[in-house]
Structures are given as structure tokens and as C-alpha cells.
Design a binder for these strands. Structure first.
Lengths: 338, 338
DNA sequence: TGATAATATGGTATCGATATCATATATCAT
DNA sequence: ATGATATATGATATCGATACCATATTATCA
């Protein structure tokens, strides 16, 4: 592959002059500029950004370290990240951790070695030690979707607590009292926050004694398993409404209820945190509160890039941006048929 | 940030010795090794892979240039790519082109400058000029999902033609004659191949005069629009079965049919190329032929990485791997209720 | 007209690592 | 004891670009 030296020789100038032409910096006469451009074309020269990055200390690459691209919520978030990054001239490296802290820190170490300009992180654990690693290297970082115990980070997330409250209240307003919550992994802040919001709503409405919630996974299978276990318990009162802490869980619940011959919403109302992607939905059916995943990805990326740009003197006051959620009432909760 | 020199000075050795310790190469005495490791720890040294890559000419990064991560098929493919790459020690940069050739070549140019070790490409156009760009740089390339006019590339794709034939034959076997196909963009080989398979099946069964197919987009909206237009034509016979060339189109069809009060499968049978992701499905309903998206991503990545490794003397005989599709018969085609 | 600024180009050092070659000591077989 | 081999460490050049400083030419203006 030809280098800047080859181009320089061919054009009869110094390498630095070629550099000026390529980067449109400094002074170059029209005549020389043309000669250089011609040489570039003839040789099929492609500048080596690696070498440039080594000198300039900027790679124009950021990384998104998150749980799983096949989860629709993160899927749309990822797209928001990519679009926003691409607009600003950055590429994105994607890393799936599947909620494993080990995997997470393995990725983070590698990314730091690769000198990415910044990292977007959905931490697998509330006390992620990856955060420390990243901050030790003074690499800009924005945490997405989740809270962490370390407060010295920018965070972009949805209002899990408020959303859970809203959804629970919706069910209560419809007359439900025995409302069961199927949440995600206990180590994840969104799982916890959704439990908190649910409990606050129950307590505020004098339903403390009906509080009934379970931690599990953010997966379809978890929804199936929890539903099975709840409805197979003998001699125990069954819920009249189930609140799924995410969309995959809700799909599992609906599938298993159908399997058991239990009708939604007639026998049991169901609602969910996060909906099913529109482009995969035939009939909108699921009552849910939705977070603006795409916008969250965009916003987090914008913040990250602004941190990258201010890097020499990093700011010390961190932002926590909480996106409001939106309640959509549909048939599954029996609230309104829409 | 400390460099290899800082570590070397602290440990009282030469930089190259530090390099040997880090990379576990060459000979280093136990004593020195310990001193070096201690210095690494104390300084929080992180090797700069950029510098290494500049010398070694390998970045351990590949790129996936495709249409859209939010499309479920590509979504699972992407996950296959990431998993497979990660196992082999590679990171993946994702680029969404949204079927735009301009966007595609913009990304490709940047990726080549970044010296990615290889590129996985879902070309937006049958005659993608990005392919030439990539091959000029002698960067390994694997085309996924689609055919291209240039035959000197490795290709990993699904059997669109065969799958379409299978699905059409299924409908014919059920007694349908007026079968309409809603395909994707005409410039995309999978759209064309699905049309071919459909036509071959129709012709083989003496149904040439019922051939009725339309190009559109691979989107839910396209399914809605085409359905509307078909069923609003007055005085023209309506299809008894619709074949959607991808899952998003099928969702649009089902949604619009429901909107029009047309029952599936009683009034119209519907089937689709590619299904709806299982983890988002409450009741499996859609008859479809599915491609193993995840495996295709894996396989393409494996081939790419093997090409990268053989790079000094690149092979000149290219592989075309065609994954078979799997027919699943469900209620939507009225074939069998399962 | 001379001084100052703007324009145009190049030389050299450097980013942080590693390849290559060189050198020095320890170990071993004969 | 001697040469051969394994072990251990370092000096120097280099990957491909750019930052910084230097120099030369041309333009501009008091």
C-alpha cells in the first residue's frame, strides 16, 4: 500500500505538504494541490488513520458496552448511538456483555488499549469496577440506562421508578389489588427501581399487604417460568394483574397464560415496562410504559462526544439525565381498547 | 498516561524487555519479569494498541457494514458476527447504511483508513462499487446475505430462490392459485431471487397467468401500502394468498388486512420469508421460511478471519456458501395449526 | 523603499510500540 | 576445555503520519 511518502515523491513535494492537502490545513498553492491530488488518485492512496491517531491521540472511535443487541430496547438504543456518532464523525464498536461483569471488564480493558475516545456503558452490576478502570485512564464515559453506586459519572437513563409507579397506579385505578410484579436481575438498578416504584404505588394506595414481587431475568423464559410457578401454587390467591418489568418478560407471560388457558385481560390483566417494537407488531395490544430508547442513545452519545471535546480540562460536575416514560393504555390491561 | 518507556525506566530495563513481558514473547528472567509487572501495576500502565498496530499492521478490528441493526434478521446476524469475532479476539465496528450506496461507500472509505483487518458487507446494490474500493486495498472481504455482479468475493447467504419456491409451492399445494408476492427493493438480489423462486414455482405448476408480484421496500409500511393498493383496486380479482418477501412486510400485511376486516387465513393466507424473533412472539402464527441469521453471521466472520490470517498469500478461489432455509408451517397459511 | 504580514514549502523530531540484529551469559555434550 | 545451544537483555531503526520550527517567496502598506 502506498504511503504519504510515495505520494510525496510522485508529486515532487515533502510528505508534510501532502498531509496539508489531505487535511486541508495550512497553506498550499493551487498548483501543488493539484499535483498532489493527482498523485493520490494515481496511486490509490488511502491515509493511514492509525498513524495519525498515534500522533493526534484521537481515534474517532467510541464503544458501546451493553448487554445484548438482540434485546429490542438496546437494539434501538444502539441505533441511536450509531446515528449520532456517525453524524459527528465517530465509529462505534459494539460489545455484548450478556449481563456478565467479567465479560464487561474484559471488553473494557481491550477498548482502553485500543485508545477509543470514549465509552458508553450499560453496567452489568451496580458496582461495576469497569468504571474505575475507565476513569483511571481519563477516558470519557457515559453510563446509560442504569444507576451506579459511584456518583461521579454522567448518566442517561429512563425513569424506571416513576414509570413503574405510573403503571401500577393504572392497574390500581382499574380496580386491581392483587398485582404481581415480575422483575429482572436483582443486581441491576432498573430491576430495583421498578420494584421501588411498584411498591410505592401499592403502599400509597393502602395495598402494602398485597405486595408480591419476584426477581428473575429480563427474558421471555423468565416470564414463562414465573407465570408457571405463580399459577401452579395451590391454595394461594392468584393475582388479577401482572406487571412485567420488561417487554421480553411480558411476552413470556402472555405466552404462558395462553398456554394455561387464562384469558388476558378478562382473567388477568398484563402490562409491561417497555413495549414491543412497532415494526414487529400486528395488533398493538400491550399496555406499557415506554422509554425513548433511540433518543436515549442519541443523547448519551452527544454528551460523550462533548466530554471528549472538552477533554483537556474535563468538567467535574456530572449530569444525570432522566428521560420521562410514556404510558400507552391498550387492551392487555383491560383499561381501554385502543 | 504512562508509556512503555516509563515502565521500562521504573523497572530499570529497556522498553523492549517490557514489551516481551507484556506479550509473553522471547526470553525474560523471572526476576525481571516480576520487576516489570510490578512497575506496570504501580503505574497503571495500559499498552497502546495503536502503536502496536502501526508496526504489526493488524488492528484486530473488523467492520460490519449492513443496512439496519433494528431489522430483526440483521440483528441476529450482527450478534452472530460479534460473538464469533469476539471469540477470535476481534472487535466489530457496526455501520448502518439504510440501503444507501452513498452511505455505504462513505463508511467503507473511512473503515479502510482506519485499517480494519477485514470487512463484512451487505451491499446496498448488486453492483456495489465499495467492493472495488475494498479489494484495491487488498483488505479481506466477505459479502453477506446478497449476491453481487463481481464474482471474485466470498459470499455467505441464504437460499432465497429455493426458499421462495418452497413457500410458494406450499401455498399451491394448499390449493391457492391467485398468489401475490410483495417483494423488497428491486436493486437487492434477495428481492430478485425471491421473485425468481416464486415465479419458478408458479410456472412449474401451470400458474404462469396468475403471476402477480410487486417490488417495494423491506418494511412494515411497504406491506401496509401494497396491501391497501391491492385490495382497493376495483373490478380486479383478489389474491387468495399473499407471500411477503420479508418479516417486516408480513407484519404490515397482517396489520392492514386486520384493518380491512379481512381474516387470515380464512379469507387470505399469508406467509413470509423470515419469521418474527421467537423472544418477541406470544403465539407463533406466521408460516415462514427462516434463514439461520445468527449462524450466517458466525460463518461469514469465520471465513473473514481465516482470510485475514492467510493474508500474505490470499487465496484466489472464492467460496459461496448458501445456507438452506427451514419451512415452518403455521396457522397464517391455513396449512396446519401448530 | 523598507518593513511587516501573508503565503508556501520543507526538515526534523515524535507519537508508542516492536522487528531485527547484536551481544552477553549460562548450560551442556563431547 | 571447547564449541554449540539456550537463555537473557539491549540498541537502533521503523511503522505512517503530524507538530513544531525554520525558511523562502510574495503581497501590502506606511
Amino acid at each position: 500500500m502506498p504511503t504519504i511518502h510515495d505520494v510525496a515523491k510522485k508529486a515532487g513535494v515533502a510528505p508534510i505538504t501532502v498531509s496539508r492537502v489531505i487535511n486541508n490545513s495550512g497553506y498550499v498553492s493551487e498548483k501543488v494541490r493539484n499535483r498532489v491530488n493527482q498523485a493520490v488518485d494515481e496511486l490509490g492512496y488511502v491515509p493511514n488513520i492509525l498513524a495519525r491517531s498515534l500522533k493526534s491521540k484521537r481515534t474517532n472511535t467510541i464503544a458501546l458496552v451493553f448487554t445484548d443487541i438482540t434485546n429490542p430496547f438496546f437494539n434501538f438504543m444502539a441505533r441511536g448511538v450509531e446515528d449520532s456518532a456517525s453524524d459527528a464523525g465517530y465509529n462505534v464498536i459494539f460489545c455484548n456483555t450478556d449481563e456478565s461483569s467479567d465479560q464487561e471488564s474484559k471488553y473494557v480493558k481491550l477498548l482502553l488499549q485500543k485508545q477509543v475516545d470514549g465509552i458508553l456503558l450499560v453496567p452489568a452490576d451496580t458496582r461495576s469496577n469497569s468504571i474505575q478502570l475507565i476513569q483511571d485512564q481519563k477516558t470519557p464515559l457515559v453510563v446509560i440506562d442504569r444507576c451506579v453506586s459511584n456518583k461521579n459519572v454522567d448518566i442517561v437513563r429512563g425513569d424506571s421508578e416513576g414509570g413503574a409507579y405510573l403503571l401500577t397506579k393504572h392497574l390500581i385505578d382499574l380496580g386491581h389489588r392483587r398485582i404481581t410484579l415480575f422483575s429482572g436481575p436483582e443486581a441491576v438498578s432498573t430491576s430495583q427501581d421498578r420494584v421501588k416504584g411498584y411498591k410505592r404505588a401499592m403502599e400509597n394506595h393502602g395495598l402494602s399487604k398485597f405486595v408480591d414481587c419476584y426477581y428473575g431475568k429480563f427474558s421471555r423464559q423468565s416470564g414463562i417460568d414465573l407465570t408457571k410457578s405463580i399459577f401452579s401454587k395451590e391454595n394461594s390467591p392468584k393475582p388479577t394483574a401482572i406487571f412485567a418489568a420488561n417487554n421480553l418478560i411480558s411476552v413470556g407471560i402472555l405466552a404462558e397464560l395462553r398456554n394455561l388457558g387464562i384469558k388476558v385481560p378478562q382473567d388477568v390483566a398484563v402490562c409491561s415496562f417497555d413495549g414491543i417494537p412497532e415494526n414487529l407488531t400486528v395488533i398493538p395490544f400491550l399496555t406499557n410504559v415506554a422509554q425513548p430508547a433511540y433518543k436515549m442513545g442519541q443523547k448519551a452519545t452527544e454528551i460523550l462526544i462533548s466530554r471528549i471535546k472538552e477533554k483537556p480540562e474535563p468538567s467535574t460536575d456530572f449530569e444525570e439525565i432522566i428521560f420521562p416514560v410514556e404510558l400507552t393504555i391498550r387492551e392487555s390491561s383491560g383499561g381501554k381498547i385502543g
